[in-house]
Design a protein around this nucleic acid. Structure first.
Lengths: 254, 254
DNA sequence: CGCAGTTTTGATTCATCTCAATTTGTGTGG
DNA sequence: CCACACAAATTGAGATGAATCAAAACTGCG
């Protein structure tokens, strides 16, 4: 909510992928409150200055626009500064699978490193601002600053671990467990960013939630209604309030 | 097949995780036929010698034994030299999800880098031999040899991309599509290793296939039978022969 | 050779999907 | 500011793919 406000204040006229030297100052990791969630985590002051060199641009992506598309040449990772995005993959016959939702401090584009080409799409669900981190520079700096190297490896590895968690969710949980897990996960991540653990605004549609969870949108909607009548949550369209997080967690361990 | 033979020749008596200096010679990446599938891919001769320094041990894991378990301290990646493994994650209430099957040249343990602890389990489905690559040494060498760094990043990134493919499979494919995709994927990987694209031995049970594909073992069995009566494959227990790969691929794009 | 684990197959149930109608919310232009 | 159009969400009824329960057959290991 605060994020959305900030986003709206800043100019809308900036073209896609602009490299504005004038904005260099705002770009500083040292003054970014996402520092410990992002790549520069646990980096000493002296090295931090060098990290800031790789954040040589920010880019705005308006709601509905793509940050990158499958097939685009890969040359940078993106760190979310504000806003909310989804990542998706498409298969041959056009079906879309949502592979993740990304909020501030999270890195996007990791699946493009290996092939030199983005394997998936990243679409803004909100007006977004991202830091552009050219991957060549990250690698270069990684060679010189072990802490950077470790952070990058940590980010990549944790993404793999997260994906394995999603496989568990998709492969062996029932619908209500999936949605409960999803809500608890969102809650945790909002909390880490200083927002309410129990009161938040979903930026994605029921269909996108369904895609992520391997369910149809109607099933997601029915589950929301059921959770509400079970007094686990309150839902009003995209606004969710968790009433009974113990009860939700209990759904998982059943 | 050649690989399996080598495995059988070498002593079986070696205790787990032994560091046998006498076996240093066999360990050489330069003479390993998995070189282009493994970490030393595209590395010049001069650097290769240095890579071999990090492969300071091999370890045998007998069928049914674990290479590592969730919660084990992470300190090395493992490259499969021979044999076949599965990786799994367990959730709180004890359900197991198979997250992957690994064959020669593939790296295991990637999900442990971030947290310093293995997040999942790796269990041998065959007698296996793996190279132990202490991660500290990999990082060190990565700092000095850009090609090593790039390969590591490539491996991590491709694992992420693979996982996204599995999410697509679990989240938006029907049972028969999942199995068809699974068979085509195995075929491709066996081919890359010089084996027959159409004739192979499954090392995992129906239950493990089912877990990986988000299906019950009975469903997997029924699908095998149906594919057989549709003349797409021939199955006899763990032996599979692909009769109509075009037909199988067609199942995917339906 | 016998037993335990694995696989196959059948009958039935159930969770989720599909199809359809309605309501609610959102953004746009007059 | 309102009305209209369109997108998103809800809810119901019925269909169905995969799960479950159960039994039999097969395999390979000791």
């Amino acid at each position: 909510m605060q994020i959305a406000t900030i986003t709206q204040i800043t100019s809308r006229a900036a073209p896609k992928a602009t490299l504005s030297p004038a904005r260099k100052r705002e770009t500083a990791c040292s003054s970014c409150n996402l520092r410990e969630l992002c790549l520069p985590n646990r980096i000493g002051e002296e090295d931090l200055a060098r990290v800031e060199q790789i954040v040589f641009a920010r880019r705005r992506v308006r709601r509905g626009e793509s940050l990158f598309k499958a097939g685009d040449l890969f040359n940078a990772l993106y760190a979310v500064r504000s806003g909310f995005l989804k990542t998706t993959v498409l298969n041959d016959d056009g079906r879309e699978q949502v592979t993740g939702f990304n909020m501030s401090g999270e890195l996007l584009g990791l699946d493009g490193i290996g092939g030199g080409v983005h394997e998936g799409n990243a679409v803004a669900l909100d007006d977004c601002e991202v830091c552009v981190l050219p991957f060549g520079l990250i690698e270069e700096l990684g060679r010189e600053i072990p802490a950077i190297q470790r952070n990058l490896h940590g980010v990549l590895s944790r993404e793999i671990a997260r994906d394995h968690g999603v496989m568990m969710l998709l492969g062996s949980m029932r619908a209500e467990e999936r949605l409960a897990a999803f809500l608890m996960n969102l809650s945790k991540r909002f909390t880490a960013r200083g927002y309410s653990p129990s009161d938040f605004h979903l930026r994605m549609t029921r269909e996108e939630i369904g895609s992520y969870l391997g369910l149809k949108l109607e099933t997601v909607s029915r589950l929301f209604s059921r959770f509400q009548s079970d007094r686990l949550i309150e839902v009003q369209q995209k606004h969710v309030r968790i009433l009974d997080s113990i009860g939700l967690k209990a759904l998982l361990a059943s």
